[in-house]
Design a protein around this nucleic acid. Structure first.
Lengths: 135, 135
DNA sequence: TTGCGTGCAAAGGTTTTGCATGGCA
DNA sequence: TGCCATGCAAAACCTTTGCACGCAA
């Protein structure tokens, strides 16, 4: 995995991810936000750090619904995000962890009745969250 | 929606999609396959026709698991693919339609317990199909 | 000092667009 | 004939890579 140097840029990136941990953000959002703060961090650096965080399980990496780019979301490692599916609101980007009893039923049904072994990594179900559906 | 002219290129593309309707294919696969048949069709044409078919609901459009490109799958319009989720095998590309009674239970649970209204369009769950899991 | 992190520029790959030409109906 | 479809080239985007320099430990 390699060492993990503590640098100003990385701290800014991680800060932004943590502040926005309820939703998935893309690389440009991060880049623009840091730039607006006057803390410009090269976009290559952002890509590289996100890749590292993703490999360490500190962020989830998905494809945005438009299919045009990747989005990332900070997660506590203890969330065990590889054990449950995720729902993403197409309007506000919020991500909901489907980490409830129903997840087992779902996996089992799919395995038993369809012979399919679900892999939560990268899987994503789109829709509208409560707030956005009300609008 | 516009007219739908009948051309040699479109017929070849549609033929290929129908022949491979059990799995999702990408643009290059189509391009290469037609080229191998000696029926070269410009890749731009393939993109444009697929976009048209997708807008008409004749193909489903997803993002491949690698997140690097789009994949397309032919579907009968009567399949009502906007009403159920889809499972994709990360190994062979096979797509399984989750159009069973369980789909309602799942939607309901997600709506009731998580306040989330599922939208099947573009959603995809990855995993391994029966055949590939056995290997 | 050592090796990781960063910035810059360039390249890679997929997809889109503009424009002139070709072809179906 | 009129409009749609096609091919080509170029552009637009997102993302990755190579390389030299900077910096944390």
């Amino acid at each position: 995995m390699g060492a993990n140097y503590n640098t100003a840029g990385r701290n800014r990136i991680l800060e932004f991810l943590v502040e926005n941990s309820m939703r998935a953000v893309n690389v440009n959002e991060i880049h623009d936000a840091l730039q607006a703060q006057g803390n410009d961090v090269n976009i290559t650096t952002i890509y590289r750090y996100l890749e590292k965080l993703a490999s360490e399980g500190q962020v989830m990496k998905y494809v945005a619904q438009d299919g045009l780019r990747a989005v990332y979301q900070y997660v506590e490692k203890e969330h065990h995000c590889t054990d449950h599916l995720h729902l993403q609101c197409t309007r506000c980007g919020a991500i909901i962890h489907l980490d409830c009893h129903f997840m087992d039923e779902f996996s089992n049904h799919v395995l038993m009745d369809h012979g399919f072994r679900i892999q939560c990594k990268n899987s994503i179900i789109y829709g509208l969250c409560e707030k956005c559906a009300g609008k």
